[in-house]
Design a protein around this nucleic acid. Sequence first.
DNA 1: ACACCGATTATCT
DNA 2: GATAATCGGTGTA
Length: 199
Amino acid sequence: MVVSVGSRLPLSYYVQDDVVFIARDLLGKVIHTQINGECVSAYIIETEAYAGETDRACHAFGGCRTERTEMMYAAGGVAYVYLCYGMHHLLNIVTNCAGVPDAVLIRAIQPLSGVSVMERRRHRDSSTKDFLVGPGKVTQALGVGRAHNGVSLLGDELWLESGLEVLSDDVLVTPRIGIDYAGEDASRLYRFVWRRGKG
DNA sequence: ACACCGATTATCT
DNA sequence: GATAATCGGTGTA
């Protein structure tokens, strides 16, 4: 059963040229997967922008176009999935036009439907603290892995839909996590967290 | 509540 | 051979 609370985001959404705007705007949107016959959906509650070749935290910094980063250079509207620390898959939403390696990392989600499927994939009960907070947990719960690198967000495996409006008073803006190697760019305010019901 | 640390491997030098 | 957009368990308080 697919639980839908909105309309699918069109290609025109992903090819917008301001990746920081998109990272903020993705808060409250709903991410859906239909993988191995199992459907789940969740609100996006935390994101980070990775701003192409001029961003030291971005894999494509300085024009580093390799087999791994190639997908970031695709036109917006596909997924960039890569293995981090040898064991966690991380999911990014590729944005902007072809040749510009911008992407938004999905760092945390809040379950909407298919909770039992996500609990089984995570080997954890959904009442566990920070059940789906952390980019490695997100991909595990969604069933996303290497096979989904390059998957179209307009297809039937992985897509986004409009969701709830997120007020700016409820958005925490901070530097990105785990990128101390990025020098000055480590202080860019490119992380967005939807703080529901908190001051 | 917080700090520390081992796991594990594709990718790049 | 070193690094890495992390996680979960263990230890101290």
